[in-house]
Amino acid sequence: MPATKALFGYDVIGASGVDDDLLDEVRQKAVDLVQEALEHAGVEAAGRANYSATGDGSLAVYPESDLPGLIDAAHFLQGRLYLHNREFLPPIRLRLCVHTAPVRVVDGDHFQRPTIELARLLEASAFKAAVRRMGTYHPATVALVVSDQAYRVAVRGQHTQRLRPTISAKWRW
């Protein structure tokens, strides 16, 4: 039985609408800001495994103990992106996804159900629609979806610093 791991993915919202000459800059800035947010939340890059770049984002596996930090990183990232977007164009907006499940750590690409579930949550039409709806009121800088399993373990288990069950209950569908 593989060990339970924390899974994290992100995607740049609207990357297909970014001018070609700015794509690499937007992608690299997103990578840097996500890494900074993860480090701020205590998630070490050295613990990352099964990394897979997705073009305008990535999917990765971390030790299960990093699960709360992966969720809390969204709060810090929101602030950093807000400040970045006040000074630079095009604005960078991100969708984040956090999941937890048994995963085998492997070298190279390897399809595993939890990674597929992570990618599907990140790309879910309901998640994208919610982000679009929020954008009619105020453009979302960071949108986070947390799988039910990750929510029960990290948030309801009261291991997160920024997301609490009493706060998030009104946002659950």
Score class of each variant (00 low, 15 high):
S147Y: 06
R162E: 15
S168I: 15
G42A: 11
K29F: 04
D56V: 07
A45C: 04
W173T: 14
G157S: 07
L70E: 03
H110A: 14
S147T: 09
I167C: 08
N85I: 11
W171F: 15
V98F: 00
A154F: 06
G9F: 02
M1N: 12
F8Q: 00
Q28F: 06
G42C: 09
V105G: 02
S52F: 02
A53K: 08
V155D: 02
V146P: 02
L118M: 06
A41I: 05
D32P: 04
A154Y: 02
Q28V: 06
T160D: 00
R133L: 15
I92C: 09
L89A: 14
K5N: 05
A129C: 07
G17D: 13
R104I: 10
P68T: 07
P139R: 08
L70C: 07
A46P: 00
G79W: 09
A41Y: 05
T4Y: 04
H110N: 03
R120E: 10
R93M: 06
P68C: 06
T141K: 09
R133D: 14
K128M: 02
E117Y: 06
I13C: 10
V34G: 03
V106Y: 00
A126G: 10
D21W: 09
A53T: 14
A37N: 01
A130L: 13
L22P: 03
A124W: 02
Q78G: 13
G108F: 02
S168Y: 01
L33A: 10
L96P: 00
T100D: 12
P63V: 01
D72T: 03
S58A: 15
G135D: 04
P91E: 13
E123L: 05
G9E: 00
A53D: 07
H138I: 15
A45W: 01
D109I: 08
D107K: 06
V26Y: 08
M1K: 09
F127T: 11
G108K: 00
I13G: 00
Q149E: 13
T160W: 03
L7Y: 01
L89F: 09
Y151K: 04
F76Y: 15
V43A: 05
R120G: 03
L33Q: 12
E44K: 13
Q149S: 14
L96C: 01
K29L: 09
R86C: 15
D32T: 10
V43R: 01
D107S: 12
V106F: 03
A73M: 05
A30I: 02
A126H: 10
A169Q: 12
L94M: 10
K5C: 08
R172C: 06
R132L: 13
V98N: 03
A130T: 12
A46T: 10
W173H: 08
V43Y: 03
V98T: 11
L121I: 08
H110T: 11
K128L: 04
Y51R: 04
A49H: 06
D109A: 11
R27K: 10
Y82L: 15
Q161A: 15
N85V: 13
H159F: 11
A3D: 12
W173S: 14
A49T: 10
V145Y: 01
A143R: 02
Y137N: 07
D107Y: 07
S125Y: 09
L89P: 07
R86F: 09
A140C: 13
H84Q: 12
D20S: 14
A129H: 14
G42Q: 04
Q161F: 13
I167Q: 10
D21V: 13
